[in-house]
Amino acid sequence: MPINLKIENKVVVEKIAKLAEHSHIKALKGFFIEMAELSIFTLRFFKEALKPRYEFKELIKQAYLIGYKSFPLVAITGLIMGLVLTIQSRPTLAEFGAESWLPAMVAVSIVREIGPVITALIFAGKVGSGIGAELASMKVTEQIDAMEVSGINPFKYLVVTRIAAATFMLPVLVIAADAISMYGAYIGVNLKGDVSFHLFFLEVFAKLSFSDVFPALIKTVFFGLAIGLIGCYKGYNADKGTEGVGKAANAAVVYASLMVFVIDMIAVQVTSLFS
């Protein structure tokens, strides 16, 4: 009996292993297919973006919706970011008697890394999911088909404008978030000290250099592009049905957030190569 049980168990384990192997291969295959489709979608974006006619009116509308409408959220996040970072850093610096470094340290952290990444993550959550859900619901309700049969290129009108707006607006939002974060840091410094506005920003700008600001801004362009691309790709290729809308919105946020970290990692490597 124990021998039989052993043999049966072995058969079951082998079956499970085979199934697991099969599902792994299937998942891997799915991943590569998705990557290939996303690459084709990206190439199509660049091709359509360069070809006239240019949808300036829709681009401006999307820039307003994507950029201006995201500003309050980004501003609040930025203020809290600066304030918390300052409050958290003070005790450690105080231990070394280096409290005077606080403005410079916070400024470099915010401008180089925290400002762009946190703003991009907030942006992915708000804009990425919004684009994903909007395009997916347009697809499900045949609005995209309706545009196509009217002889209008829906890719150009819906996708190109949204990706371009996300790409242009995220750097602007990051600049705004960085500035507001600095103000938050100034408030944080003055919670347990007395530093004038002039002195605080003198310290900040003395330590910030071109190599801190420029690479950080360049990477936000790529963050915006990735968030717009993934949001549009997921929405535009959504499956039929309301379930597809939820899935598209969810996948847009998850993959866009993941891409922000991947791009950030690459950007850090590239920046360190040049510096």
């Binding site: 309700t141 045949e142 609005q143 309706a146 545009m147 049969v149 009217s150 002889g151 290129n153």
Partner: peptide
């Protein structure tokens, strides 16, 4: 080609089951 198809599509009206109005 796509451009010519789009010109032809303007001569064809399509009423969708759900009307597919741009909401």
């Amino acid at each position: 080609p796509t451009e010519e198809l789009n010109v032809l599509r303007k001569k064809i009206g399509f009423l969708f089951q759900s009307a597919a109005l741009y909401d």
